[in-house]
Amino acid sequence: MPILNYIYLCLTLFSIGVIGVLVRRNAIIVFMCIELMLNAVNLLLVAFSKMYNGAAFANAPTSTIGIDAQIFVFFIMVVAAAEVSVGLAIIVMMYRNTHSVDINFLNRLKN
């Protein structure tokens, strides 16, 4: 499978996430689109890892070249889990104060 197919797929998913952040006003949906972007990046990292491993696979089938990318993906998942717990707590606090999850209410820094 050419690496370009994976790159196009991940770019499409990432752009869908960007469009979601730009057009939606619900803070939870915006947050979910950020998760979508993180997942697109994860998939691309794993594809590149297998690309480098595949180049070395013909000579040494047990080589571990490219394993760093998969460890990075693991750490990205760890950080995303921590980020989601804090972010959702912030959204709940915002809902308690304004009784809405509309991000357009959060413009107090404007003036």
Binding site: M1, P2, I3, L4, Y6, I7, V46, A47, S49, K50, M51, N53, G54, F57, P61, T62, T64, I65, G66, I67, D68, Q70, I71, F74
Partner: peptide, 26 residues
């Protein structure tokens, strides 16, 4: 990036044994 291919369904780096070794050493 032209002409590079991804190794599908083969290779051992995605299995838990090499990943655990790398995670707990490096």
């Amino acid at each position: 990036l032209q002409g590079k291919t991804v190794l599908l369904k083969e290779g051992t780096i995605g299995l838990i044994h090499p990943l655990g070794k790398a995670l707990f050493s490096d």
